[in-house]
Design a binder for these strands. Structure first.
Lengths: 345, 345
DNA sequence: CATAGTACCGTAAACGTTTACGGTTGTCGA
DNA sequence: TCGACAACCGTAAACGTTTACGGTACTATG
């Protein structure tokens, strides 16, 4: 005699009643429910998830898909970890099991997702590193799997998403640099088709245009979103004939490599070139200090989780007015890296 | 009609045979097996994991437990991610589902683990951040859950573990610094009871003793294993009356904060103080370049996964001679940060 | 007092697998 | 021809839940 049956026998009531009592169904005497709960605690009874899953067709698991591997390491990590932490706290409230699904860089994200779904692994998913055109979204929509994304996509299937205000960042940064006299401004973007790259570069271009300037295609640097990418950008930039006087770094970790690249050439941010980037726990320790954008990733994670739950029938009533789509403004932390004032031409 | 039953009906054979065919049982005609496999592919049949789990009492999931959250972020991340990548490739071979279980800093790791186990979540576990005395190990051993740890512990319950050669690192680094004339050498250790801290400090002490020197307790700095911790160490160190001339950093990320702390005081590693640390993707971009230890984390992950599988009855025959306990040597990458030569006293 | 309604509970089917057991067929040697 | 054996396959029970359905006892209402 095991599981719920044992509990029922011990209490001398039927397993149906025990199940109802534990699941908070209304049609059970409060007195009985109390007895059941006590006995469950006493006997250390924990419902078998396989049994529940089989019967209900749900797994109680929410998966947070991230990428990992050589190309990404340094990026994937710190940012998503912090967001994850926020997500975690929300799902814990509902006794949902949140796990991280790390797609190795060796594997195609689409294939990976297909496997996860075919396996019926999770009741809901959170996707990150949203591509400009992202087949994963259509795939999930077709399968009617609840999901939310961290990042917008042109592939819009009506899912909830949260994103950072890349437009705002580009605009603010460009305005700021132009105000300081810069005319030749470089920007970076990820090496792949992550949507934020497009958004960022487009907005930078139009912000420049508003000042009567244009974005030199030669000054758009592509790189992996990690330190190595930043280093490589610095090397490329330094090899240019007509060197820019300022640069906008879209990813966080690249600032670290970029600094290093400059320093090897005897250059210093804020003296020889103006740098505006984005902050992570690491970048706060750069020297000279980085001027960059920052926000609470944990809060972002919380909002992301709530947005997802709001679209899941079983939980939606908990979040009647969750924001399903929101762009999070980042705050500019002023540092020394853009102190550079262009000498009058 | 769904699932295996549908497949059986389509083939006009019994579900038992279908199951046996799919699971590679010997007592099924190879011809039949071929037909089943083809039909399964054609109809896109994927066995329902809940059904299997319920029947077999296994979940097909392996969990990799890591810590996350404010205190850790910066550390947890890059190191474990890379290891995870290696682990992933091994488990994928066996069609096991590997997930990351991220224990938030807000939660007690013991409690978290208890929940995971009570829930019957995984068939096997990998634990990281092993404490000097780690109740989690005894807990898992009692429950007879297969697991392996990344890091030794005094709590030895016979589980497989892999670890880094902290003794070797301490020894090599001390010898090297002493040879350069240093007498007053500081070391760091994590703020909590992670075992590696004890190992590292003990070995550093005995390495110093071999040179007729002793480790000043006042020069053992505790900190969180992230950039902020390194920064704090720098501040503390600089406030000392009798400042050390060299320091050994046990964690990777702290070098970044430490550099920053020095730089704010106008000091430079390799000129004003000798620094030996450990390398991560980030630290390669420090300037002056860091002298530190490095190894392939991915390979470590592969070995870790194989060690775990070797102790799981269902998989052990795949890894008849896996190394169940191994200490991985790290390689010293020479940089400029310990170029500092002590002037003759 | 009869009836309707309510509050609570028990029964049993169903979810999709795996696997022990036994049955059928065919082969081969005595 | 018969028995033993092998090779293959079908049957049905079991894993631990949830939940639709129906039943009982009690209360309220006319």
């Amino acid at each position: 005699m095991t599981g719920i049956r044992r509990l029922a026998q011990h209490l001398d009531i039927s397993i149906g009643t025990v199940s109802r009592a534990l699941n908070g169904r209304p049609d059970v005497n409060e007195e009985t429910r109390k007895r059941v709960l006590e006995a469950a605690a006493e006997l250390g009874y924990v419902p078998n998830q396989s049994g529940r899953s089989l019967r209900q067709g749900t797994t109680n698991i929410i998966g947070f898909m991230m990428q990992t591997g050589a190309e990404i390491t340094g990026q994937g990590d710190t940012f998503f970890m912090s967001v994850f932490d926020g997500v975690q706290t929300v799902f814990a409230r509902h006794r949902l099991d949140l796990v991280a699904l790390l797609c190795s860089s060796q594997e195609d994200p689409d294939d990976y997702l297909r496997r996860v779904v075919a396996r019926g692994f999770a009741d809901g998913l959170i996707l990150s590193a949203t591509q400009r055109h992202d087949p994963r979204l259509e795939f999930l929509a077709k399968r009617k799997i609840p999901f939310a994304t961290l990042g917008r996509s042109l592939t819009d299937v009506g899912q909830p998403w949260l994103d950072l205000d890349f437009e705002g960042m580009a605009q603010t940064a460009i305005d700021r640099l132009v105000a300081k006299g810069h005319r030749r401004i470089a920007v970076t973007r990820p090496h792949d088709d992550v949507n934020l790259g497009y958004i960022f570069v487009d907005q930078a271009a139009s912000a420049l245009a508003a000042h009567g300037l244009s974005l030199d295609p030669d000054l758009v640097f592509r790189s992996t979103p990690n330190e190595a990418g930043g280093y490589q950008i610095a090397r490329e930039l330094l090899s240019k004939k007509d060197r820019p006087t300022a640069i906008l770094l879209v990813n966080e970790s690249i600032a670290i490599g970029f600094y290093r690249g400059l320093s090897e050439a005897g250059l210093k941010p804020g003296r020889d070139i103006a740098v505006i980037g984005r902050h992570s726990p690491q970048t706060h320790f750069l020297s000279p200090s980085l001027t960059g954008f920052e926000l609470s990733r944990r809060d972002l994670g919380i909002a992301l989780a709530e947005a997802l739950l709001a679209t899941m029938p079983a939980f939606s009533h908990f979040y009647p007015n969750a924001e399903l789509r929101k762009i999070w403004r980042e705050e500019l932390i002023e540092g020394e890296s853009d102190a550079f004032l262009l000498p009058p031409a």
